[in-house]
Amino acid sequence: MKLRNLVLAASAALLSLGLSAALQVGAPAPDFTVVDSKGNSHNLKDFAGKNVVLEWTNHDCPFVVKHYSGNMQALQAEMTAQDVVWLSVISSAPGKQGHVSGAKADELTASRNAVPTAVVFDESGVVGKAYDAKTTPHMYVIDKAGVLQYMGGIDSIPSAKVDDITKATPYFANAAKAVLAGNTPDPAVTKPYGCSVKY
């Protein structure tokens, strides 16, 4: 009897480890506090009442380079013009590809004509793991109420070729526009593609 209880307890513990809290669209987005390239601290709660876009990035990743050929900058300009908070998140650990200093991040933003609200750092990977961010780029849309509305890929063609951008269905752009219009995006979850996040 004891034996069975032990087996039960041990395996139930294992199971609960395996199925830890899953991220879900339609549920409140995980809270976070991050510091940006200028040293300012941001908390998700600070943006209550505004739509928020999270973009996981790594400037050396070919898939990020593909979209920074103009597509990403255009999206940033379009969104921020409509009062969307756009955070470019760098989860690369120190020493890993894409890890940059605040100054370097600002320089990259300037040289690429990027216009995010802020570039924020997540060296420890805590935010990336909370959002289950797997690739760069990896896109999230959070609505004014703090509810996660979209997560996944930037578009439908997983490739590193710039030519494919115009051929692809712009999943993220469609979703962000739907959220701005007060609608629920469809699809709300798509397959992210790109380089692995360098945790």
């Binding site: 087996v7 041990a10 199971l15």
Partner: peptide, 20 residues
């Protein structure tokens, strides 16, 4: 099901069998 999983470490299973 949670009752019977294969990834319980073998030594633990053996220890529990001995206790049984």
């Amino acid at each position: 099901t949670q009752g019977q999983q294969s990834d319980t470490a073998l030594w633990l299973v053996l220890l529990m069998a001995a206790a049984g």
